[in-house]
Design a protein around this nucleic acid. Structure first.
Lengths: 328, 328
DNA sequence: CGCCGCCATGTTTGCGTAAACATGAAGTCT
DNA sequence: AGACTTCATGTTTACGCAAACATGGCGGCG
């Protein structure tokens, strides 16, 4: 900056003013400074800026993995929205999804240049780590328990699952089977609970639960078992990838979807419209989730306190070819 | 820090020494300082540190989108490897994939707290932006032209495509059709070129090229057209998602895969083993790509210059049920 | 015509940290 | 025993920037 000032024949302060678009710099001076900046390839040092302002204009995002479609799409939305608000995103990976791993992430976080944190993961583990969350750092949690210590943004899992079950019952199925996600996942648990509640509310038999791990492969394994259940005419999978596995299993076992068995997924990943057959699924608005996360976290940074509490993003059922009435 | 020092009854410098694990602090003093830190919830200010050191221990990643599986998996590998090397990752999204969008990203980059940059995108656009790349910032480019101004890390697209075509020819197919990715993508172009080269090298007819945009939907549309070509018995899709669309189109048109037509994909996304039928595809080692990117970029930051040049990460063909010999 | 106030610009200062240098106490060697 | 080393710790300083305050020139007003 001093070099630029010297070259432009002004003081460093004037360079600073030009650099920040301060109004009280006369046109000719401004031009000279800008020219000097260009010639010297000056770029402001953000560390010094951050030191001065006490803010980094950066949001940290803690997540386990990007391999789930939901996580990466949420992250993308967060990144875009953050960019819009003038914030950058720093990723804080949790290498191993254990309590220690989370603690490690939070420790690193304490040393990182972030003004706030968005946590995308199961709060089972978050709980244990709470203690080490640096005080004064705003936090927004996605996909967690509706814990009132935090601001939570999440898809309306319950209503989504309810819609899926309702749709199948409305088609005339006696009951609906469920392939759930892993127990550690709050989203999985809430979808499973909503499935059970909806069935019970309708006075239907609640079939035994199958569990997968979100992967297509695990859905396939569950599907092989379900194909052997003669009463199974409708399955609600907790995500689209497991639904994909179901479709494959049913196909291999000679069960035609949707003639013999109907399948509903959850997420509405872009590929799901190209499954064989195209998948009826619950659409999640990841973009909206990301947007709200950033909006809330930024508001906290600006000291416009948004109390803890949960924001639910609505879902909507997308009807495709994988569902139909039960076999005659 | 001053507060901690006062509380521990030492100087600020001693606190700093403890904080950085400097050896010349006697045990008892160290304990007192650590206790004071704990009591006061002290966490070092990374802005000040960065200002002092002139480094941020952060790598910026510029990318267009996370919606492609390849991008998000590469990013994940980059994040993990960077964490291992003690670097954080800051994301720099390019909202609109235009020349201006890229320029904007690079401008923002100039103001961001990063020591180096990894670019994940088509270099078509990068070229235009080159001028504004701040000098002195190490850059590694993924999925780009083998431009010798940059250090490039990429999957061996050519060999992967070659293996796919070779496999189909070896099965006895007369020739292989190709559904390419978008023209703007260098990866797509290189896969298409390798496909053509391999066919020509084998003295086979080169069928007309279909183009998609990486999406399953675009693969579906291409597939509907290809299903009408009686000579088409083998198709190489430039990615797994378009292959998924092909499978659906063939299924709908009554063509049985692989009996009537064989399909090979590219990427080996986790779901591809659960397609109907499971997809033969070219496995890309995204993890390795990410690892090498970080390794090279960190080496540059440390002033251990790695000259420009390309590192190719090998691919391998994964054989599944979607390929077989041509119909009798 | 002179005083006041405004505005463009310059000067000083401090943000939190760690390197470089300074100090002083406890040993070590001749 | 005296000088010299070693080492734990303290003091000063600079990193780059921008807020706060200082300055000086100019126009407007009575």
């Amino acid at each position: 900056m001093a070099d630029v000032a010297r070259r432009a024949g002004v003081s460093a302060q004037t360079v600073s003013r030009v650099s920040n678009g301060h109004p009280s710099v006369v046109g000719s001076t401004r031009e000279q400074v800008l020219a000097a900046m260009r010639e010297l390839g000056y770029r402001p040092n953000s560390a010094a800026r951050a030191l001065k302002y006490g803010q980094f204009r950066t949001i940290g995002v803690i997540l386990f993995t990007l391999s789930s479609v939901g996580n990466s799409r949420t992250l993308e939305a967060i990144v875009d929205q953050a960019a819009e608000e003038g914030y950058a995103i720093t990723l804080i990976p949790v290498a191993v999804p254990t309590r220690d791993g989370v603690l490690g992430a939070f420790t690193r976080l304490g040393e990182l240049a972030v003004d706030a944190v968005i946590v995308i993961m199961e709060i089972h583990l978050l709980d244990a780590a709470t203690v080490s969350l640096p005080a004064g750092v705003p936090v927004v949690v996605v996909d967690s328990d509706a814990d009132d210590r935090y601001t939570v943004v999440d898809t309306d899992q319950v209503d989504g699952a309810r819609q899926a079950v309702r749709h199948l019952l409305d088609l005339g199925h006696r009951t609906v089977w469920h392939v759930a996600g892993p127990e550690e996942s709050f989203a999985a648990e809430r979808r499973a609970t909503a499935w059970r509640t909806e069935l019970e509310g309708a006075g239907r038999v609640v079939p035994p639960l199958s569990r997968g791990d979100w992967s297509a492969e695990s859905g396939y394994r569950a599907g092989l078992a379900l194909a052997g259940e003669p009463d199974c005419t409708a399955v609600f999978a907790a995500n689209d990838q497991m639904a994909l596995g179901l479709l494959r299993a049913f196909h291999e076992k000679g069960k035609v979807v949707p003639r013999d068995v109907s399948v509903v997924g959850f997420d509405d990943i872009p590929d799901s419209g190209s499954f064989v057959p195209p998948l009826t699924t619950v659409h999640q608005d990841f973009t909206e989730v990301g947007r709200r996360c950033v909006e809330r976290v930024v508001r906290q940074v600006r000291n416009e306190p948004v109390g803890p509490g949960t924001t639910l993003v609505p879902t909507r059922l997308v009807l495709r070819a994988s569902t139909a009435g039960p076999p005659a």
